[in-house]
């Protein structure tokens, strides 16, 4: 009898062991399947697909805008005044491309050799460097600005995203080319001012070069204008 219970005990113990081993193996298979690395790969693929779709839609938007302009141009002279105001507002909002004299500002990351103790971050172009340059250009009367083909509008952001800079939700990386339509001499002078932006950036070896252009093209803001929260408000008198 004692012998028999010992045998049952043995079978039970080994059954427990076998059960645990297989459970563990199955769980391990499941866990390996959701490694963070694979997840990152999947997300990258999703992001690529989304970006491709976005580019397609952007193209569609551009062609539709061309049609809108055609239609607007064909209207009678009675609404010419309205059209003029519309054109002005389109320049201001950035939905139409702008042509005119101005300057091209090109910025490169520092090429200066650095020692190991120095923080490599200070030798790279950051969002706040761009913001300073853009601010200076606006102060000097720039009428339209684009950075690497991204038109700056009232809604544009200039923000660090990892190693790149996001403008209009598009990632932008050095070399940075800023096109600004306006009075070239004034804008160049504002940037080159002693102790000004270019002076500060050259401290870290960030190269800023400027060329005056007779004819510059600043592209249109190529995203859909959609208003989720803002509605026009009727305000009587001056606020």
């Amino acid at each position: 009898m004692r012998q028999r219970s010992g045998q049952v005990m043995l079978v039970v113990i080994f059954a427990v062991l076998g059960f645990m081993v297989t459970t563990q193996i199955r769980n391990q298979q499941r866990l390996v399947g959701m490694l963070p690395l694979r997840r990152a790969d999947e997300l990258t693929a999703l992001l690529r697909a989304a970006e491709a779709e976005r580019d397609l839609l952007r193209y569609e938007l551009a062609s539709l805008r061309v049609r809108l302009e055609e239609v607007a141009a064909s209207e009678s002279a009675a609404i010419a005044a309205l059209n003029r105001e519309l054109a002005s507002l389109r320049l201001l909002s950035g939905v139409s491309a702008v042509r005119g004299p101005g300057i091209l500002v090109t910025m490169h990351d520092s090429q200066r050799p650095r020692t190991r103790q120095q923080d490599p971050n200070v030798f790279l172009i950051h969002d706040d460097d761009l913001l300073k340059v853009v601010n200076e250009l606006r102060a000097a009367g720039a009428e339209a600005i684009s950075i690497n083909g991204q038109r700056l509008t009232a809604l544009s952001e200039i923000r660090c995203v990892g190693p790149t800079i996001s403008i209009n939700s598009v990632r932008v990386a050095p070399p940075i080319v800023i096109a600004a339509v306006g009075d070239a001499q004034t804008m160049e002078g504002a940037l080159k001012m002693r102790g000004g932006v270019v002076d500060q950036l050259s401290l870290w070896g960030i190269e800023v070069t400027m060329t005056r252009e007779r004819e510059l093209l600043v592209p249109a803001y190529d995203r859909v204008l959609s208003w989720k929260h803002a509605r026009p408000a009727e305000v009587r008198g001056t606020p």
Binding site: L10, I13, L17, G18, V21, T22
Partner: peptide, 10 residues
């Protein structure tokens, strides 16, 4: 025997 019983259950 015990091992295979456990493995099948698991």
């Amino acid at each position: 025997m015990g091992l295979s019983i456990g493995a099948i259950i698991g």
